[in-house]
Design a protein around this nucleic acid. Structure first.
Lengths: 138, 138
DNA sequence: TGACAAACGCAACTCTGTTGCGTTAAGGTG
DNA sequence: CACCTTAACGCAACAGAGTTGCGTTTGTCA
């Protein structure tokens, strides 16, 4: 998995630096959106203390490259996740803050068609987040 | 419309100050989410130059009172809209930045039931935004 | 192994939003 | 209508996320 991504990065002209590799390891094993703060702390656990500027620039670069995706939840916290996980939606537990993924694309396509017919609005992308209580917190 | 809201505010113990009244006039006539910056500029057009602290506190207070709702789109910009418009979703044009509303609650209820059955996640709230091109920008 | 540009670190900065505190004024009471 | 209480307000200082400029380091390719 990681080697596949590394290869894709190389093909896109990215250099494989220790930080970049570690960053992808974290994003891949995390499997759910992670904040800049979370990334920096995960990197610290690997013994790396990169400057925050580096992280921000890295995320911006990888985002324009299409390798990662920015997700916005309530309040502040911008979060990032790997795009290779495919498009999906999030279940955010308002109690323990864990995030689960859900997939239900076919249904959403229906919506988008309906909206285009009704309002002539051409949709390219959407973001859908659910807030509630996870199994454990109910 | 505005008088109805004013009455509801009074009933909830809010005082009716010039700024607060103007704020609701703006939110009502806007009919779509508006940013803090947008609010301050709209107030300026009415000849009011309130301190930004006032606006932030006002929005926080009205939010906990349930009179307004915070909406998060891509990137930064927190936006606010009146709750009396009812729950709905947004069509954000990525070219001209205009925002339209869509309503399709029944369908979403179906989703939430499906998710509960499948994943035992109890949903209380969701946010759904579509990004694309509006009729004019296509 | 040397050259070049991408990647990096550092410091200073910008922008959004917050906090503390003293002042003003909305609205209820006599 | 005058008075009183406290919500609402303004100001200044602050906090945190993210950005910019610039000089240095390092990955990669010839």
């Amino acid at each position: 998995m990681i080697e596949k991504v590394i290869k894709a990065l190389k093909n896109s002209g990215y250099r494989i630096t220790p930080i970049r590799r570690a960053l992808f390891e974290i994003l891949i094993t995390s499997k759910k959106p992670i904040s800049v703060d979370g990334l920096i702390r995960s990197l610290a656990k690997k013994g790396m203390k990169p400057n925050k500027t580096t992280i921000y620039r890295e995320l911006a670069s990888l985002k324009t490259g299409g390798f990662i995706k920015e997700v916005q939840f309530k309040s502040d916290c911008r979060m990032y996740e790997i795009t290779s996980l495919g498009h999906h939606h999030h279940l955010v537990c308002t109690k323990c803050n864990t995030i689960e993924d859900v997939r239900m694309e076919n249904d959403m396509k229906q919506y988008e068609k309906k909206i285009y017919k009704k309002m002539a609005f051409k949709i390219f992308e959407h973001s859908l987040e659910f807030f509630g209580l996870c199994r454990k917190c109910q």
